[in-house]
């Protein structure tokens, strides 16, 4: 998957251009905060997980300040992405509610679109869903995290 420590340093570790993400030192409710947008050419959702059923919190880091902003959540079952949550914020950093016009926060389901290929049913309005209530406490903590201005110090491989 390309996360920290997944390759032996003796073999040179994971080259920056091959990384899918970096783990930060932060966790919220035990879920790892990952930086996706370190590689300057990419912000790509992670389709598979090393752990069996994790929840990953996707953040971007301000290039100058290192300030982390979590804007996505990935929910995995049996190492595969099954649900993603896109968080949208207002100017005060508060989460915007679900909106049918796509301006608000929302979730998508992911499943096997072809043998061995995880995808989502694109352009399916029924796959643009409100966020389940059970994630609300986690989202509240994400909002607090974002507002606290946590800084990511990238670990050298």
């Amino acid at each position: 998957m390309g996360g920290n420590g997944s390759y032996s340093k003796e073999f040179g570790g994971v080259k920056p251009q091959d990384r899918t993400h970096y783990e930060t030192e932060y966790k919220i409710e035990g879920h790892k905060v990952l930086v996706l947008q370190e590689n300057p050419s990419h912000d790509k959702i992670i389709m598979n997980s090393n752990s069996r059923n994790p929840i990953y919190l996707f953040a971007s880091a301000d290039k100058k300040t290192g300030k982390l902003t979590i804007s996505g959540i990935g929910i995995y079952k049996n190492n595969k992405l099954v649900e993603s949550i896109d968080l949208k914020f207002d100017s005060n950093g508060n989460v915007l509610p679900f909106s049918k016009t796509e301006d608000g926060s929302h979730s998508h389901n992911w499943f096997e679109v072809a043998p061995g290929i995880i995808g989502r049913k694109s352009y399916d309005k029924s796959n643009h869903k409100p966020i389940k209530q059970k994630y609300q406490k986690l989202i509240d903590k994400i909002v607090d995290f974002n507002k606290k201005g946590k800084i990511w110090k990238k670990r050298k491989d």
Partner: peptide, 27 residues
């Protein structure tokens, strides 16, 4: 098309950011 991802890119030749949004119709 298959996985169904949205795609955003920066086109160097005209200095413009574009996005292909596949979550709803019309795309």
């Amino acid at each position: 098309v298959t996985v169904g991802l949205n795609l955003a890119f920066y086109y160097v030749d005209n200095d413009t950011f574009y996005g292909i949004h596949t979550e709803s119709l019309p795309i």
